[in-house]
């Protein structure tokens, strides 16, 4: 289980009346195995900041993030990075491909960064499930936005992570692929016992959530 305990992210700014503001303020949240947690809210409400803090990418200015009993931000960078690579599957917003690698190499990359040999068959199964197996040898520059999103999803799932953190995973997808991706993520939670956090603007995603939260001005409320 991944837990956020009263975490905050405070930024300083050079102008304005106040010299700082909170992107995330005093949020506590638990991502449980087998559940899809959906986080929705307006742009700038702090959803992505919260996701990055949960992923061990952004050190909170207050509070703790615990994976089981391990405080992520108490770990040295090398260990935290290793833990993130092994336990987390993160689907960031926007382009996240390594341009010099093919689609298949991108999907295999997390495993290889962990020192594994790379399960090409498993990677191809994920690409096939997302409808882009035929693009395995293509370079990211040759892919559309939707195809790149699906490649990022395949890459996050291929490592069989305990926690899946998806930031607008359906942003560039058509209705058909949106449904396929949401179904896939829900099945990863329900059938493989993964803890899934889905940050989205898309109201179509709400029915797929076990729990749904809304963020507003850095604060979290259950819907």
């Amino acid at each position: 289980m991944l837990r956020a305990e009263d975490i905050s992210m405070r930024y300083f700014r050079k102008t304005g009346q106040a010299n700082h503001f909170y992107a995330v303020k005093g949020v506590s949240l638990a991502l449980c195995p087998g559940e899809v947690t959906i986080l929705t809210g307006r742009s700038g409400s702090g959803k992505t900041t919260l996701l990055h803090m949960l992923a061990g990418l952004l050190t909170p200015t207050g509070g703790r993030v615990l994976l089981d009993d391990t405080d992520l931000y108490a770990l040295p960078d090398t260990e935290l990075s290793r833990l993130r690579g092994a336990k987390f599957g993160v689907i960031p917003q926007g382009r996240s491909a390594v341009d010099t690698l093919t689609v298949l190499e991108n999907v295999l990359l997390p495993g290889q960064l962990r020192g594994e040999r790379g399960d090409a068959e498993g990677a191809l199964r994920w690409l096939d499930a997302l409808g882009i197996a035929h693009l395995k040898d293509a370079r990211p520059a040759e892919l559309s936005g939707g195809e790149l999103r699906r490649m990022a999803i395949a890459r996050a799932l291929a490592g069989n992570p305990e926690v899946i953190l998806a930031d607008e995973p359906t942003g560039d997808l058509d209705d058909e692929n949106t449904e396929a991706v949401l179904t896939l993520l829900r099945r990863r939670a329900a059938e493989a016992g993964k803890a899934v956090l889905l940050v989205t603007h898309d109201s179509e995603a709400l029915p797929y959530g076990t729990r749904v939260y809304r963020m507003e001005c850095g604060a979290l409320s259950a819907l």
């Binding site: 992923a55 990418l57 960078d77 090398t78 935290l80 990075s81 290793r82 993130r84 690579g85 092994a86 993160v90 960031p92 382009r95 996240s96 491909a97 390594v98 341009d99 990359l109 997390p110 960064l113 962990r114 890459r155």
Partner: peptide, 16 residues
């Protein structure tokens, strides 16, 4: 730098 940020996301440490 986005590519490097992605590598960090995938588990590469600062040292790596």
């Amino acid at each position: 730098r986005r590519e490097f940020a992605v590598l960090r996301l995938l588990g590469v440490s600062r040292r790596g």
